[in-house]
Design a protein around this nucleic acid. Structure first.
Length: 691
RNA sequence: AGCGGGUUGGGAUAGCCAGGAGAUUCCGCCGGGCUCAUAACCCGGAGAUCGGUAGUUCAAAUCUACCACCCGCUACCA
């Protein structure tokens, strides 16, 4: 089956993978939501009838476990995060038509209806499996409620995967010497009746599905291993309280079973679109038409870590309940920070709230995330690169062009000059419109965004070469007429990526209505005859000091988080992190700058702990001329008693500081997170200058 | 181990599915121009044996095989 191109006659649905209601959002998460939002806005520009929905994923073991740690109910815990997400997305101009959550009534009913349909179609069977059980707490222990020894490598492992050893996925019952994470008691295995969805029946269907699926190539290729191999049936129940009850449980004897979180999570796509229909009315948007009638125009935008769920489980679930299959799955790459993966536990991330608190406009980040690399490629985030792209692409190219064109037009013509659009510019804009449409049909948000920037670039080139400031009004009129048209087209084409900034440009142009309601055809519609001088450039530049400040903040924060970490966590990162070095500094320093450092050989004379500090030590260091008191973060990483007598390298002319109320006069150099102390190989005496 | 993705001028990034002339664009660098505009903008230039080897072909960044390195997935982390 090949799909007709967007825009289609049928309503489309764009969804974003459900954020798990278990923590704060960061820039990595936002990539998926910005991509989905930009794509759905892009479809609207094409005139496609489309709804954009998502919701919070409220169930599952991690939420139950974390809620318990906090001493609140899972519902309260998850709702708190849900509300936070619901507030955060609009602040990034991620405007869902409906944003629900998996614990709301619509989803519960729909999920149970799915399961009933599977039962009715004979896609479900029961099987006895071994499940860990805590006899003292009188409770079943699914997934991460149990820990023990990995049957493959013998390492300590969680119930669902060998997280410290061989990384293998573990089935319930695999773990050796299971221990309850609730009570620390030894757990025992008991036979337990569970429900399974016959995924294996859908093998042939899925092979066909994967070949007609549109979207990113990673989504089409990654699941082949499963689909073309042997598909395991999916255990769709868990022994928990927190979740959606297995429907009609008493009749089926499946009391106190809830549905596996990956059953009810994707159903939220259906539920959320249903809620939207109910709000706006069937005649405006008919969710049933999308899901169960006619051609399917369902596009799932997800992170690339959940491809299998959307290309194996979910289509099978839909097929088993006679729903439409997705037309496309678009899996975005990850976001790295300065070349390394985000690490939320080390606070090494750019948080959504933090970004906004720094006063940056959301559209800047949207632009960065949506156009930094192809959809499925990983994107590196750094404040330097952010600055570079904002300054050179948004401020210099787009902002400057819009400003100079409109300012010139307003000053000299009170608006759009009375002249015909030249063929050349018309052709150029028409080509951009075509490219734009093609890009969206290729699910290529990046290219779509680039057409707008390319048009602005062309505008700068054009106005520069035509130099209307050297011409009289009659000669300048057609040039400026073209430029105003280019501004209008830029506003329309950039709208999906930077919706607010595009709206600003639209307003400066004095165009009627909102660019959010415009379509690509408006790119060539005549701009208003008159408009005033623009009220300023669209984009401000970010200066170097600001970037330095942001990097410093990040480093400090990571250092603080790392200082509070236990050894185990620190080892996690360093053991396998051989390639994860910080990028080399771009800026070279001159020799004089180096000479400004007064580096000396020192010998640690004494080392005491500092009360209240997790890993700071008060050192007294003999640097020949005198003995200094230096505070250093070494406690976790070195045996305090062994330190005296160790020779170290000291920065002697570092400004003095106070850490935990203790004066520190200098710095002891050490390498990496493990604070591997620098020392001398020979017998250089304390006080010797290092050069 | 299996699977997926990647390796392209100093840095980043496109092109690969549908093989075809000087390999895209941005940053940076060198030289020039302009002054309407945000010290912006425009023009020109240097810089890449497209990770390696072998093959298919009149023709390979693109297709095939093998190899190296990097990232990820393997059924509950964007």
């Amino acid at each position: 089956m090949t799909h007709e191109e967007f825009p289609t006659e049928h309503p489309a649905l764009v969804t974003c993978g459900l954020p798990y209601a278990n923590g704060d959002l960061h820039v990595g998460h936002l990539r998926t939501y910005v991509s989905g939002d930009a794509f759905s806005r892009g479809l609207r520009r094409l005139g496609q009838d489309v709804a954009f929905v998502s919701g919070s994923d409220m169930h599952g073991t991690p939420i139950a476990v974390n809620a318990e740690k906090e001493g609140v109910s899972p519902e309260e815990f998850a709702l708190r995060h849900h509300e936070q997400y619901e507030e955060t997305f609009p602040r990034f101009n991620v405007d869902f038509d409906n944003y629900g959550h998996t614990h709301d009534e619509t989803n519960v009913e729909l999920t149970q209806a799915f399961v009933r349909a599977w039962e009715a179609n004979d896609h479900v069977y029961e099987k006895e499996i071994q499940v860990a059980y805590d006899p003292d707490a009188d409770q079943w222990l699914p997934d991460r409620y149990v820990e023990g020894e990995c049957p493959y490598c013998g390492e300590h492992a969680r119930g669902d995967e060998c997280d410290e050893g061989c990384q293998r996925h573990l089935e319930p019952g695999d773990i050796v010497d299971p221990v309850s994470t609730l009570t620390g008691n030894p757990a025992e295995y008991r036979e337990r009746e569970h429900k399974f969805l016959r995924l294996s029946e859908f093998q042939e269907y899925l092979e066909g599905f994967i070949n007609r699926l549109e979207g990113t190539s990673n989504a089409q290729n990654q699941p082949r291993e499963w689909i073309e191999g042997e598909l395991q049936d999916l255990c769709i129940t868990r022994d928990m309280d927190w979740g959606i009850d297995y429907p009609d449980e008493e009749a089926n004897g499946a009391d106190d079973l809830v549905l596996y979180v990956w059953v009810d999570a994707p159903v939220e796509y259906v539920a959320s679109s249903k809620q939207y229909s109910e709000r706006v009315g069937d005649e405006t948007y008919d969710w049933e038409e999308v899901w169960a009638e006619g051609d399917s125009e369902i596009v799932h935008v997800i992170g690339r870590d959940i491809i299998q769920h959307h290309t194996v489980f979910w289509p099978s679930m839909l097929k088993a309940a006679d729903y439409n299959e997705p037309r496309a799955v678009c899996a975005t790459g990850f976001v790295n920070l300065n070349g390394e993966a985000f690490s939320t536990s080390r606070n090494r991330a750019i948080w959504a709230d933090e970004y906004l608190a720094e006063g940056f406009h959301p559209d800047l980040l949207r632009y960065y995330l949506a156009t930094a690399a192809g959809f499925e490629r990983d994107v590196n985030f750094s404040w330097e690169r952010f600055q570079e792209r904002v300054n050179t692409e948004l401020a210099d190219v787009v902002g400057n062009f819009v400003n100079r064109a409109l300012l010139f037009a307003a000053r000299n013509f009170d608006g759009t000059p009375d002249a015909e659009l030249t063929d050349e510019t018309e052709t150029r804009i028409a080509a951009a419109m075509d490219d734009y449409e093609d890009a969206l049909n290729d699910y290529d948000v990046r290219s779509a965004g680039e057409t707008a920037v390319a048009l602005a670039r062309y505008g700068n080139e054009y106005i520069q070469n035509a130099a209307p400031w050297k011409l009289d009004d009659d000669e300048a009129a057609p040039v400026i007429r073209d430029c105003v048209q280019l501004v209008k087209a830029v506003a329309v084409l950039l709208q999906p990526i930077t919706p607010e900034k595009a709206e600003d440009a639209w307003d400066q142009l004095g165009a009627e209505g909102r660019v959010a309601d415009a379509t690509v055809a408006d790119c060539l519609q005549a701009p208003p005859e008159t408009f005033p001088e623009p009220d300023g450039p669209l984009f401000e530049k970010i200066d170097d000091e600001r970037v330095a400040e942001l990097n410093e903040k990040l480093e400090t924060r990571v250092a603080e988080a790392t200082a509070g970490e236990d050894d185990e966590a620190a080892n996690d990162e360093t053991d396998d992190g051989t390639a994860a070095f910080e990028a080399l500094a771009d800026d070279r320093i001159d020799f004089g700058t180096f000479q400004d450092l007064d580096l000396r050989v020192g010998r640690i004379e004494g080392a005491d702990e500092i009360e209240g500090a997790d890993d700071l030590l008060r050192l007294s260091v003999d640097i020949g001329i005198e003995t200094r008191q230096i505070v250093a973060g070494l406690k976790q990483l070195h045996d305090v008693a062994d330190l005296p007598g160790t020779k170290v390298v000291v920065v002697a002319n570092l400004e003095q500081a106070e850490l935990f109320g203790v004066e520190s006069d200098g710095m002891v150099l050490a390498a990496g997170e493990e604070a591997d102390l620098l020392t001398t190989h020979g017998d250089a005496a304390p006080g010797t200058k290092i050069k």
